[in-house]
Design a protein around this nucleic acid. Sequence first.
DNA 1: ACCTTCTTGTGAAGCTTTTCACAAGCGGTT
DNA 2: AACCGCTTGTGAAAAGCTTCACAAGAAGGT
Lengths: 212, 212
Amino acid sequence: MPLSRRISDSTVRRLSHYLRVLELIQADGGVTVSSEELAKRGHTTAAQVRKDLSHFGSFGKRGLGYSVDELKDRLRTILGLDRLWRVILVGAGRIGSALFDYPDFKKRGYDCVAIVDTDPEKIGERWGERVIRPAEELESLIRELNVNLVILAVPASAAQVVAERSVNAGVKGILNFAPVQIQVPEGIPVENVNLVMELEALSFQINRASET
Amino acid sequence: MPLSRRISDSTVRRLSHYLRVLELIQADGGVTVSSEELAKRGHTTAAQVRKDLSHFGSFGKRGLGYSVDELKDRLRTILGLDRLWRVILVGAGRIGSALFDYPDFKKRGYDCVAIVDTDPEKIGERWGERVIRPAEELESLIRELNVNLVILAVPASAAQVVAERSVNAGVKGILNFAPVQIQVPEGIPVENVNLVMELEALSFQINRASET
DNA sequence: ACCTTCTTGTGAAGCTTTTCACAAGCGGTT
DNA sequence: AACCGCTTGTGAAAAGCTTCACAAGAAGGT
């Protein structure tokens, strides 16, 4: 159980995926599952599943497989889903609005406790239980509401400044939708979602496929 | 110039990123750029930049660096941005709406030529120049409008069926926002954007950082 | 108690990606 | 024309990730 080694990003993605598959299996009434089956439904190989899990301990029973229920719990703990994450959404545009009531977020323990924007037209607008606050309140909201995560749904030009202000106010991680690489202090994880990049990867591959 | 070898996904992502950095450099009046500078602004190393580019030819001048303008053009060609991509959006919910008028799409040559949804309330609604069409028309719209790409912004349960119908109607690539791994024929690229997975990667890393 | 069947956990092998290091090439200067 | 400072392009080395293959262990049947 080499709990200390660095875990690759691809491993983490797969863990997240296994968790989703486990939920489906449980919904179908499954009680135990083999690495083989998990692999088949999760788009990978049995050896990969076992190797991924082995980084965190040994959760299976030889000859039997894994207890769906137990493995689900373990994965939830590993992924940090056994607690509530308080999220602040910065940017109440289209993307912000899509993220705000993305049903799966709440299901997984991510609670959007505040929304801020710079647009005076939007400030004061009510989204569900929340009211959009002015961007100046970013720091005070983070402190008062004990916010852990910030979702950046702002234009590229604003992203760096907002990121810095958020980190200074105590945020521990950033989900960045702005198409720009932001600089943050060591130890603050940033995940980037860049929609144009995804489309470009797609058109690249289509071109490639047709070149053959 | 080993034009034939498989190009890794991470390389493609970086190319896309270099392109954006080049645009910024050009906006600042830069005319040439070294791999060193490109690396610094693009979150990687100079050797990586050169290796990435070397897969497609040699675009630089020793002692000088790269012509910003030329490299930009080359990257656009490599990424398939030297043509127009016709996109159909399936699912006119929050995420669909955010994607529909994401300004950078059009800038990069992706044109959303149609929107479909199953919800009778939404059908007929006007979004900018487009009107939401019923989902039954998916195939005919793809054929008539010569659609190349489909963006799946539908619930997980519908994703597989829509993907199959789209591919059968002639679509060449899929951008999938549904949190499920879809199965498609060999040679049809799929890019997945899974928002929950991003948040989970984030909370995993935050936990990890604090364990030290 | 033993045998059979199944499946995990894991070193080692194989493969891919990144980093290193340096010869080759370009432009300006003397 | 020779030199010098810089930067590319690229084999080779290093690091990282995935697949293989098999010993070890668990349950059930005889």
